[in-house]
Nucleic acid binder design. Structure first.
Ligand SMILES: [Mn+2]
Ligand SMILES: [Mn+2]
Ligand SMILES: [Zn+2]
Ligand SMILES: [Zn+2]
Lengths: 138, 138
DNA sequence: TGTTTCATGCAACGGAAGTGCAATTATTGC
DNA sequence: GCAATAATTGCACTTCCGTTGCATGAAACA
């Protein structure tokens, strides 16, 4: 039993061949992945299977969904021990307008915001757009 | 010539009847408006006209587009004299999970974020989700 | 082994954004 | 005013992404 299989089982997901492949794919990419990216990478697998795998992973807190403002849902593996929905774990995301890639900046947490009276914050999403380190040539 | 007509002309938009109605509608709503909302409010007008009017308004900086994470684009009138794309004018948006409405918190600017080396920020989007003042009963 | 539960594949649907083109309306030059 | 021109509006259609229903296949269980 490999590390990935153990991880999946720990999260309550049966480690099928497909799921292991998808996990590996997510692990080796350092950027957020869209369903379409998956489709291209796994031309043999069905779109629905990829879709449902991502949803299962999300539910079991293996990945978190990222809304980077492109209107295309992206996904990235959660950090070990992260509580995606807890305020202290909400990190920001960076979307590069040049290469169109989105990355997690897991070290950069979303600052706490004081809201007007009556507003109760439960979640937050902060996306910075611009040019990424690869594209800025630095 | 009414105030609205003047405003539109100043922004370089011909004040047609339709556009004046749409502007009025946006002005009297205190929440961000989706294209579908428009369709319901103006059942006589064609969807495309509403769509293109919003795009024109956006281009001419009469409204700004809001991505609140629902994957439905919303629009709200810009504050007088605002430079939507300038960093100092980027305010945050609040989406209520209860009533599903999104509001501009124009007084709450997005805090400046220090990025890792090589990343160049050009724009930012911060959406807080939770319960709005009306729904929290306060 | 037989039964049940879960995963996968195929097909179709739905909502929202966007586009080409024709028709209508407003503006301009004479 | 009237023809020529430009801008706006309406209709039809497309595309893209996300999502669901249902049948089939594989794995776990008893
Ligand atoms: Mn992330
Ligand atoms: Mn706003
Ligand atoms: Zn880049
Ligand atoms: Zn509310």
């Amino acid at each position: 039993m490999t590390d990935i299989e153990k991880t999946l089982e720990n999260k309550g997901v049966r480690p099928t061949a497909m799921r292991i492949l998808i996990y590996k794919y997510l692990a080796e990419k350092e950027v957020a992945i869209a369903l379409t990216d998956m489709e291209n990478a796994f031309s043999k697998a069905d779109r629905t299977t990829l879709y449902r795998t991502l949803k299962t992973f999300e539910e079991k807190r293996i990945v978190h969904q990222i809304d980077d403002g492109t209107n295309i849902s992206k996904y990235a593996l959660c950090e070990p021990g992260c509580n995606c929905e807890m305020e202290q774990d909400l990190h920001l995301h960076f979307h590069c307008d040049n290469c169109d890639e989105t990355v997690c900046l897991t070290e950069h947490k979303i600052p706490h915001i004081n809201l007007p009276d009556g507003y109760v914050a439960e979640n937050a999403n902060l996306v910075i757009k611009g040019i990424c380190d690869k594209c800025s040539g630095q």
